[in-house]
C-alpha cells in the first residue's frame, strides 16, 4: 500500500470510528436520561427527538457517506426529495387522522 493509500485508509477508518463513538453517545444519552428520569417528560421528549435527528445525520455522514460535495448532487437531491415526500405522507397522515380523532372526541 502506498503512503497515499495508507493515509486515505486511515482517514476512512477514522470516519467510521468517529461515527461509532458519536452514535453510541447519542444513544446512551437519551437511554440514560429516560432510564434515570433525569428530566421532566417534555424535556425528555425534546432530548430524544434532538438526539435522534443528530444521530441520523451522523449515520448519513459517517456510515452512508452522504456529504454536500458537488460530485453527487443527484443522490443528495434524491434523498432530500424523498424526505420531503415522506414528511408530506407521514406528517399528513398524523395530521389528518389526528384531526379526525380530535373532532370525534
Amino acid at each position: 500500500m502506498s503512503a497515499q493509500d495508507a493515509k486515505e485508509r486511515a482517514h476512512d477508518a477514522r470516519v467510521y470510528q468517529v461515527g461509532l463513538v458519536l452514535a453510541l453517545v447519542l444513544s446512551a444519552v437519551p437511554f440514560g436520561a429516560v432510564a434515570l428520569g433525569l428530566l421532566p417528560a417534555s424535556g425528555l421528549l425534546w432530548m430524544i427527538a434532538i438526539c435522534a435527528i443528530v444521530q441520523i445525520l451522523v449515520h448519513f455522514r459517517c456510515f452512508l457517506h452522504i456529504d454536500l460535495s458537488s460530485n453527487h448532487r443527484h443522490d443528495l437531491q434524491l434523498i432530500l426529495f424523498s424526505v420531503c415526500i415522506v414528511i408530506l405522507m407521514a406528517g399528513g397522515t398524523l395530521w389528518v387522522i389526528g384531526n379526525q380523532r380530535a373532532m370525534m372526541m
Partner: peptide, 18 residues
Amino acid sequence: SFTVWLHHFFTMGQDANV
C-alpha cells in the same frame, strides 16, 4: 399529487379547514 389525497374522503369527519 402527493398533497391532495384527502379529497377522496372529504366526508370522513375532519375539520372543515382541513
